[in-house]
């Protein structure tokens, strides 16, 4: 069981996307998003009323500015976990801390300005009659008005490629664009922490590219991004840290190179996951852990030149 409960310290990623922890209340460094809190789950357990134990003692610490993918089998507790981050669900036991403070007594409305969560199912989130009104709702409730509000709305719609649809009815958009709209309505709130529940499902190639640029943009600003995904290529290429869950527990936690290394494939398959194809090819060629195409290419070139592989750009964790 040595791979279990690696969540607290040993699996810390060393990737470039992981910024050193700025003190959450300290002055913002230039180009850094202000007041990005650390997130800590400490022995969190949650049961649904029908007795399903969705979280079973999850401990996890996410530093400000980290970009974390949560992966795992359907029903392994991923969505339940992220709903604890903005207080939609409260732990049966254990604690959730934002910026070092227990959020036990914090209201969802108060947390909404710090942790933005885009649901898996956009139809659980959207309610307005106009796309612009939908996106305005969040920032307006956070107190934005006038030109500032309009700028936030326009930037969010632009980010997901819906700038031309501001006057449309959300339900005249197809499912994939309703999902992008749900993401825009969270982006407009300018929260220091962004959480996306399966943002790429139902998206075509352009939609996936759009989600990738949303993630990259938020990371460049120093915001924390957490996303649930089954798309292992997206996970390997866009995230500095991967947390794998099974049956309400964290079973793997590390950089893509670490988590997708061949030694973890049996664990991944036990939680219904497959390593990215680049990782499989790299392992078959004896090139080490290469979860991304760029990492595989670098390793293949280095092997041909007789040099040890340099890590790829999106997976700078230690190669095996």
């Amino acid at each position: 069981m040595s791979d279990f409960d690696r969540s607290n310290d040993s699996g810390r990623p060393t990737g470039t996307a992981v910024s050193p922890a700025d003190p959450p209340s300290g002055p913002a460094a230039p180009g850094r998003f202000p007041d990005v809190p650390s997130i800590e789950l400490d022995g969190v357990t949650f049961e649904y009323p029908d007795g399903t134990r969705a979280l079973d003692g999850v401990s996890l610490r996410i530093e400000p500015g980290e970009v974390v993918a949560i992966v795992g089998q359907n029903g392994s507790g991923k969505s339940t976990l992220v709903k604890h981050l903005n207080g939609l669900l409260r732990p049966a036991s254990g604690r959730v801390l934002l910026g070092g403070r227990d959020i036990r007594d914090a209201h969802v409305a108060g947390l909404a300005g710090r942790v933005g969560l885009a649901f898996q199912n956009p139809d659980r989130q959207l309610f307005a009659g106009r796309v612009s009104a939908e996106v305005e709702f969040g920032p307006r409730n956070l107190g934005l008005r006038g030109a500032e509000l309009q700028r936030a709305v326009a930037a969010a719609l632009e980010a997901v490629g819906l700038a031309g649809e501001a006057a449309a009815n959300p339900y005249d958009l197809g499912y994939s664009r309703r999902k992008l709209l749900a993401i825009a309505s969270v982006l407009a709130m300018r929260t220091p922490v962004l959480v996306f529940d399966e943002p790429t499902t139902g998206q075509d190639a352009r939609g996936v590219a759009c989600v990738r640029s949303v993630v990259a943009g938020a990371v460049a600003e120093g915001r924390t991004v957490i996303a649930i995904s089954h798309d292992m290529r997206f996970v390997a290429e866009c995230f500095g840290r991967v947390v794998a869950m099974r049956a309400g527990r964290v079973v793997l936690d590390g950089s893509p190179s670490e988590v997708f290394a061949e030694s973890h494939w049996s664990e991944l398959r036990a939680t219904y996951l497959e390593p990215p194809i680049a990782a499989v090819v790299g392992a078959r060629l004896g090139l080490g852990s290469t979860p991304t195409a760029s990492g595989l290419i670098a390793a293949a070139r280095a092997a041909l030149d007789g040099r040890p592989a340099a890590p790829g750009p999106a997976d700078s964790g230690p190669n095996r």
């Binding site: 075509d204 190639a205 352009r206 996936v208 290529r233 990215p276 194809i277 680049a278 499989v280 090819v281 078959r284 060629l285 195409a293 595989l296 290419i297 293949a300 070139r301 041909l304």
Partner: peptide, 28 residues
């Protein structure tokens, strides 16, 4: 707007990057 299957895409990326093609790569 449609992505080719992952295997096909990876093969194209490797070829585009000029990775020298070998029987081992085909097999992998």
């Amino acid at each position: 707007g449609v992505e080719a299957p992952a295997r096909m895409r990876l093969e194209r990326e490797l070829r585009a990057a000029g990775v020298e093609w070998t029987a081992a790569l085909d097999e992998a």
